[in-house]
Simulated assay, not measured.
Amino acid sequence: MEEIQIITPEELQKKLEAGEELELVDVREDEEVAAGMIPAAKHIRMGDIPANLDYFDKNKEYIFICRSGGRSANVCYYLQEQGYKARNMIGGMLNWTGETK
């Protein structure tokens, strides 16, 4: 299996603070997201990713986020197999110290 690209919560926070335009996707369940998500993220539950493939653009890179980094890693592997550029935020929201909404 091809390795997936990763980003740490700290690196992501620096990029957002620097004003970088990033495509963030939070794949957690509704009740998890209700407790707070990164403001710039779009919410698409892990189970809904296959049905939402037309949302993704093969020319863009997406950063996937979940609670601890496990589900988002699975989503990254899946999307990479479909030919999309995906990066996993390792450690997930458990390690996110930045802003949430």
Rank of each mutant, 00 (worst) to 15 (best):
E3T: 06
I6K: 06
I6E: 10
I7Q: 06
T8Y: 12
T8H: 07
P9Q: 06
L12Y: 04
Q13L: 15
Q13T: 10
K14T: 14
K15I: 00
A18M: 04
E20T: 00
E20F: 09
E20K: 05
E21C: 01
E21S: 13
E23I: 01
L24D: 03
L24E: 07
L24R: 00
V25L: 08
D26P: 00
V27R: 03
V27A: 04
V27L: 09
E29N: 08
E31D: 15
E31G: 02
E32A: 05
E32N: 01
V33A: 07
A34W: 04
G36M: 09
M37L: 10
M37V: 01
I38W: 00
P39H: 10
P39E: 10
K42I: 14
I44G: 07
R45H: 14
I49Y: 02
I49W: 03
N52G: 07
L53E: 15
Y55P: 02
F56N: 12
N59L: 05
N59Y: 08
K60M: 11
E61Y: 11
Y62Q: 11
F64H: 08
C66Q: 06
R67V: 09
G69F: 06
G69K: 04
G70E: 12
G70D: 01
G70L: 05
G70M: 11
R71T: 02
S72W: 02
A73E: 14
C76K: 04
Y77G: 11
L79E: 06
L79P: 00
Q82I: 05
A86E: 07
M89V: 06
M89W: 06
I90R: 05
I90F: 08
M93W: 05
L94G: 02
T97E: 14
T97A: 11
G98E: 00
G98S: 10
E99Q: 15
T100W: 02
